[in-house]
Design a protein around this nucleic acid. Structure first.
Lengths: 333, 333
DNA sequence: TTGAAAGCGCTACCAG
DNA sequence: CTGGTAGCGCTTTCAA
């Protein structure tokens, strides 16, 4: 008869060590309320090692009534070095506080659907970037035991803590800068790629805010991330009469700069150009690209906010504005 | 007395609907083995909706003895559009097959430690990019009930399925191309950033392989992703006597191209330059950057491999070479 | 110092 | 067609 290698449970460990399951639990969890003799401890550890015992997280949190899982939806779009670094720091900091960070691959699930799927995992906290969550979603999560729901996005959501990453500020920075440089007919690139609206809309709005009440005009410029699209935009440039452009971010800025230069439009003489995100590539362009440097909150601070919220779930939702934006002027503006 | 809003269980639904927990389970899972009257179904659904009931995934999979969770470690470094697209497609395809994809934030855990942490979640399958997993880790996962372990990396691991993404091929492509262009003293950029060795080492090795037995020389060029580092490298260029360089990828190529041009070294006349990954930015450089285009496997194929492996856990590990590499020649080489 | 046993939420077998 | 119930793996009182 073939023995199928079933995955060992704490009962197996107990049997092998010749003790009860309770004792195994005490030993492996270092329960301080109970004192177990040294020889017994050793036998238990030995048995666990020999069997390759790994505790069953689901069973544990079922029994405990709560988990230490912090859930985030996995980003669907490639994420830049800035945000990636932020995520790493956050994961590290939460790890230090003994939380487990899990990114949930939410594909094609919309709004409350997604919230329900997340809730099935009974996370102790949920961090949601962008605007993927409404008040009802927050309700679902909280009723399922999430002790903290934090949104990282443009606006706060009822019932949830919020790290307001207000991309208006990025546009305001750029707009004010271009105005200060004497430009009055200002274009703002709006990527046609989907998934970017959450950032592009407020960035455009920010430029409008900064220039409201002045003699400057603001024009949205739809642009796909392709050479053709950029070439078309550049071909119509002179008739547009624009003398400055905020290019959404450094990558779109590079695309547009190249197209403009190929079309004989000079940067910055004919048109001032500024990007955002302060990527390395901006420094490598000629002329060097001006950009809006963005400062994200520290992952450690967010981790502490989460921990605070988990410990005091009744507390008032905290709302922090956390997006710092400042112009780095180089040669293109 | 304040009523703490406890999260509703199927028992609560049963109570409200005036049926048993079993009936609730049957109705909500559409169990086909039993037939429930339409009025009862309606009452159950009604009650579930009213309470905002969300099933408890951990309890369910504890009972079932298995989950539908596919676990991947979350990438620690920012991931390019190519790999990001691959991940999305994979998640989508696995979602279609009714799996749930979860990326586990593995911070600071090494090798078998990490494998144990993953195993605690009892995933039905584990996908591991890179070389983060040894044979012992595979053993831990399998003994914990993982029915499929798939590595996506440079070499196969005993006991696991493997999607061989052999970055040697990238280097070979580049090396052969530069040789064919008449270059004989070939440099290969090796990024100093940690976490990239898994790719940079085989890419360098591939160049060596391609040029083995010829009259060409191959020199590794350590380079950090900073302007200073690139400037230093460029300053020593003429004395190095190199007439070609494979720059690891397009981003390092852009960095190096700029530094070389600033130092008065002409591309491609003095030095031929080729990158890899076929990013948009390569097309925007002047001269346009030659590159090695990399073809990843389709996410759908990998999803099917996973599904196959889950259904037939006893099957021989499949090993596929899945990395296609081809040169896209532009102007820099 | 150790063990017996209850029970977390859920599903599936078997009776009625 | 519906309900009672056992039990998944684990922790934690309570008793010995």
């Amino acid at each position: 008869m073939v023995q199928i290698p079933n995955t060992p449970t704490s009962a197996d460990v107990a049997r092998l060590a010749g003790v009860s399951r309770a004792t195994v639990s005490y030993v492996l969890n270092n329960t301080s309320a109970v004192r177990i003799s040294e020889p017994t401890r050793r036998r238990v550890h030995e048995a666990a090692r020999e069997l390759g015992y790994v505790p069953h997280a689901a069973a544990r949190s079922l029994r405990a009534g709560h988990s230490r899982m912090v859930l985030m939806p996995a980003p669907a779009i490639p994420v830049g070095p800035l945000y990636s670094g932020f995520l790493n720091e956050l994961q590290w900091a939460l790890g230090r506080l003994d939380y487990t960070v899990v990114q949930y691959g939410t594909v094609g699930l919309q709004g409350d659907e997604a919230a329900r799927a997340w809730a099935e995992l009974r996370p102790v906290a949920v961090l949601v970037p962008g605007a993927e969550l409404g008040p009802r979603g927050v309700g679902v999560l909280k009723r399922s035991g999430a002790r903290a729901v934090v949104t990282l996005g443009p606006e706060r959501v009822e019932g949830a803590h919020a790290l307001l990453m207000d991309h208006d500020a990025v546009g305001q920075c750029a707009g004010a800068h271009l105005y200060a440089r004497g430009r009055r007919r200002i274009g703002v690139v709006v990527p046609e790629e989907s998934g970017l609206e959450a950032y592009s809309r407020p960035r455009l709005a920010g430029v409008r805010q900064a220039l409201h009440g002045t003699d400057a005009t603001v024009t949205g410029l739809p642009l796909a991330y392709t050479e053709e699209s950029a070439a078309q935009l550049a071909a119509r440039w002179r008739e547009s009469g624009l003398d400055a452009v905020f290019a959404y971010n450094d990558e779109y800025a590079m695309l547009l700069m190249r197209a403009l230069q190929d079309a004989g439009v000079r940067v910055p003489e004919d048109v001032a150009l500024i990007g955002a995100d302060d990527l390395m590539l901006g420094r490598l362009l000629r002329p060097r690209l001006s950009t809006v440097h963005i400062e994200l909150p520290s992952g450690r601070d967010l981790a502490e906010l989460v921990d605070r919220a988990v410990r005091d779930p009744g507390g008032e939702p905290e709302v922090h504005k956390v997006l710092g934006a400042s112009v780095v002027q180089r040669e293109s503006s």
